[in-house]
């Protein structure tokens, strides 16, 4: 995917610059981009290192389990079948807890586990409603602390840094709710597999 993104952007830019005679601008763009990538990554190293350490402590101290316990009564309504058959329910709650905390390294393997559990004893190549809701929530999840965005904003000398959490909470919260509602409604209309 990364390779394709890179390839398409470069090809379009080169062809475009040749046709518009903007090769000087393109040359500057290449050199500036390459040196800018180093400053971007360096500005991320500090907060990523610290934040990963913080999150590891919370994980080892069982914070995902605690958040899972809080979320379980709510998620019962979001994933009715998984909770009724008690298949994959624990994996689902752990995955969503990790997602909310922004632990994407932890949430992806948990999601894979959850979907494998949900797929046990099934011989269909169609996804069930609960799997779809989980996948939608993997893409549209409430984001508690958007560390990467805050780190880049600080590196770019923004004066609005931590306050960005406010609009992010509003937007990511509404998107998560809408994601749940839409995937449930469409699932209900089209029937489960």
């Amino acid at each position: 995917m990364i390779g394709k993104c890179f390839g398409i952007l470069c090809i379009i830019s080169v062809i475009f610059a040749i046709f518009t005679g903007n090769l000087q601008g393109l040359n500057d763009g290449i050199l500036e981009g390459a040196s800018k990538s180093v400053t971007t990554v360096i500005s991320l190293i500090g907060i990523m290192t610290f934040w990963n350490g913080v999150m590891q402590v919370l994980m080892d101290a069982g914070i995902i389990n605690k958040l899972s316990k809080l979320l379980k009564p709510i998620l019962k309504f979001v994933f009715p079948r998984a909770f009724k058959e008690n298949k994959g329910a624990n994996e689902i709650t752990a995955c969503i807890s990790a997602n909310i905390l922004g632990l994407s390294n932890a949430s992806t393997p948990l999601a894979l586990n959850a979907i494998e559990k949900l797929n046990e004893d099934r011989d269909s190549d169609k996804a069930t409603n609960d799997m779809i809701t989980l996948a939608v929530l993997g893409c549209a999840c409430f984001s508690l602390i958007p560390t990467t965005v805050i780190a880049i904003r600080i590196a770019q000398g923004a004066s609005i840094t931590y306050e960005i959490i406010i609009p992010v909470w509003v937007v990511s919260g509404i998107c998560m709710l809408l994601g749940i509602i839409l995937s449930r409604i469409i699932g209900k209309i089209s029937g489960d597999c």
Binding site: I2, C5, F6, L9, C10, I12, S13, V14, A17, L26, G29, I30, E32, G33, A34, K36, S37, T40
Partner: peptide, 8 residues
Amino acid sequence: LIVSVSMF
């Protein structure tokens, strides 16, 4: 990627 976006 930053080079490609910057080029774009």
